[in-house]
Amino acid sequence: MTPMPSTIPAVVRTRVRAAVRRPARLTPEEAAGRALTLRIASLLLQYPDSELAAARPELTAAVKALPVTPAAEHLAEFTDWFAAEDPEALERHYVEMFDLRRKSSLYLTYYLHGDTRRRGMALLTLNQRYRAAGWSTGGGELPDHLPVVLEFAALAGPGGGEAPLRQHRRGLELIHRALTDADSPYRYLLAALLTLLPPPTEEDRAAVDRLAAEGPPDEEVGLDPYGTYGEGEFAPPGTFVPPVPAAPTRVPPTATSRTEGHR
């Protein structure tokens, strides 16, 4: 977004920026389609255990039934691959992309705050946002895990519900870039999410470039970091330990909660 002239009063500049970043007013049908898109993305970004793999036909059908949007097109590209892949290969690929690569971790506050004290406060604030809306993660995952954030966005709506996604847009951009560099089909899911957010500003693009080159702030405070193995990561291999897997935030009707993690 081109910077506005400094001659425009500050209050006007603030209102214009807010209008640009505020989600457009949606019809009830559009809102329902958007919520379903977010819920499907939340499911597809969870660990592909045997139950989720068994639900692939239903998930593929649900994606095909979505209204035609850029996000739905990206989801369809992903499910074409997801439906055809061997289940064990899906599990291996997921672990490689999200558990063993720090640049494509699904824990969003890491990209904004790194391993600093501010990250702990950000997690607390996010939990408080969920509770204020009358929603609980059930304690199975950290509140910044992307599938959790997506489920909340689907339930609470495009205003306050999607606010955490807008706040962590730069992290989402970095995950998308890392998955694209790794030629992972999961890049389509991140691409779908990015189409639902306001366009990035020049400041956003510059910040993502810096983050990709330098990594987030670093100040060890006892939080378990989330994987750094492979080339092009933020720290040398072996420095960090992958997290213990947790139950998914939501499963399809035919599925049960995840009980066996990838270890």
Rank of each mutant, 00 (worst) to 15 (best):
P248V: 05
V12H: 06
E85F: 04
G33H: 11
L150F: 03
G114R: 02
L38E: 02
F98A: 09
D181C: 07
L124V: 14
R205Q: 14
R25A: 13
I175K: 03
E173D: 11
V16I: 14
S50V: 07
A247H: 02
P164V: 06
E91L: 14
K103L: 08
G230H: 07
L174H: 04
P164W: 12
Y110R: 01
I8C: 04
H168R: 02
G114C: 06
P28W: 00
D144R: 06
L146D: 01
Q46K: 01
M97R: 14
R177C: 10
P248W: 07
I40D: 00
A41S: 05
Y186H: 13
L90K: 15
A53S: 08
V63S: 08
T239W: 10
K103E: 08
P143T: 08
R56L: 04
G238I: 09
T201A: 13
Q46Y: 03
L190N: 06
A72P: 00
A18E: 08
D86Q: 09
L52F: 05
P5K: 07
Y47T: 08
L155K: 03
A10W: 07
T7W: 06
T79E: 02
G232E: 10
R250K: 01
A54K: 05
P252T: 03
R187Y: 05
M121K: 15
G222R: 11
A83T: 07
T239M: 14
L66M: 11
P3Y: 03
R177E: 14
F82N: 04
D218T: 15
T239E: 13
R21H: 12
G157R: 01
A54S: 02
Y94N: 12
P185K: 11
E85R: 15
P225T: 08
E203M: 14
L38H: 06
G33R: 11
